[in-house]
Design a protein around this nucleic acid. Sequence first.
DNA 1: CATGTCACG
DNA 2: ACGTACGTGACATGA
Length: 572
Amino acid sequence: MLDAEATLARLRPILEDPSVAKVNQNIKYDLVVLRGHGLRPRGVAGDPMVADYLLHAGERSHSLEELARRYLNHSVIPITELIGKKSRKTPQLSMDQVPTTRVAVYAGEDADVAWRLCELLEAQLASAGALAPQDLQAPEALTQPRSPLGQLYTDVEVPLIEVLAELEYNGIRLDIPLLRRLSAEMGQQLAAIEKEIYDLAGHPFNIGSLVQLRQVLFEEVKLPVQGRTDITGAASTDQETLEKLAVLDHPGAALPRKILQHRRLAKLKSTYVDALPEMVNPKTGRIHTAFNQTVTATGRLSSSDPNLQNIPVRREEGQQIRQAFVPAEGWLLLTADYSQIELRLLAHFCGDAELRRAFAEERDIHAAVAAQIFGVPEDQVNAEQRRMAKTVHFGVIYGISPGGLAQRLQISRDEAAKFIDSYFARYPKVQEYQDQLLQNCRTTGYVTTILGRRRQFDRDALRANSTYQQRNTAEREAINMAVQGSAADVIKLAMLNVYRRLQRERRQARLLLQIHDELVLETPPEELDALAELVRQEMTTPVQKTLGLHVPLRIDLAFGPNWLDVKELSSA
DNA sequence: CATGTCACG
DNA sequence: ACGTACGTGACATGA
């Protein structure tokens, strides 16, 4: 085995020299590992995994094995050949347990394949899409990819790798004693609810077993089946179903209510309260998620191991979990989230004057739209009307259907259809924009975001020769891609801006999390005001300018001693 | 490993 | 006549 210290000492001058360009498959991983050994590599110049993601997001795997097979017609040495397969008998080895001579062969191939793939895929990015004439004349066009996708790669995704590595390395601190107390408390509550459920059912059973639960609810207690599951067609027992059962005039209607409570609590306990403390890194005392850059079809990031993008917030029971996310000792958390980012992008894209004005004047957009579609003055919109307008908006962003809206609003299909009609009648530009987008997609086969990110569609699925359902699904995906993907572009630019300013100003503050339209940072209290101003600035004006947005961007800033108890700082 | 469910934006 | 909104990841169960 190589001596770690001597090896790192030899590599350091190369790795930390920004003029020596580095590429590798999933290079973010290398950055995080090396950072853990006190190295901060510079000069990250490419990653074939990221390049292939921009070319084929959501279509296929971007693993080295797949890329090598597909583009180089080469089978790479399987990692299992060195470290073995996962089995009960022989545990998988770690790389340092493998003889250096064998590792060298594997590593050499790994580096060679990654390098060749990077050249190949970057060339594809550079030639993807039409090149504007001025780009062809630019001298750097010969060496630098200047197509929209090439620019997205060079200017956004590649620089972002370092930022994501930083977030992963930083991690976030967790209040473990709080979670332990919560776990005990929830355990007791669960035991109590369990007992009530067994009494109501007449016997004990495994509440987490869907088979047993169906047996109890629909065969023993004889509650009416409300719906069936997608794949196997078994009687559904999901939240919506249980809520319907709970309000029935039936002797067994008390049971679903209790099941619902039990489910909710059991979910929180197993997924968060008990799981998170186990994932705290003993060396750092913090929890280090992975921010995946090449997973989603739309350009969003995802978070895993653990997922920190789905920490509870909506219900009261879940909020205590947020409280356990805390800053470094003596520091504060700062959160910054975009207000209505997807709707603002919709307004930008469709160019509707009314929508754009509502945002420009910082009006309550849901109330403004409710006023329009219900034909009442904006200050006389009631809570119900506003709620409906909000739901319609979600529908517009997701690709609305009368059936879907009807279900969400608990109204009839016809009524839902009328709402949609009156929305599009008031905002004809939205409909024109969506129709145009679909027409483009049918012609080109893809939808692009504001930064030129693409999602490919099956052209046949969007045409008449597909089933009704295939077509509708594809149309909704296409419509949603433009806004969801562009919102992902926006926050990626914002992350780069914030990260660079933090470095330039040598701030102690650290970026910790990204949750699609929100950034979470930690800072010493004395830097809070300066940080808030920095973040507000970097997330709004320059991003708006870069993208040429016709609507203003707005963020809400808040700070506090944990992720739940944050109080509003200012907004702009 | 598939299924159903549910946490988030 | 359409089982009915977009995008994720993790858990428990039961093969």
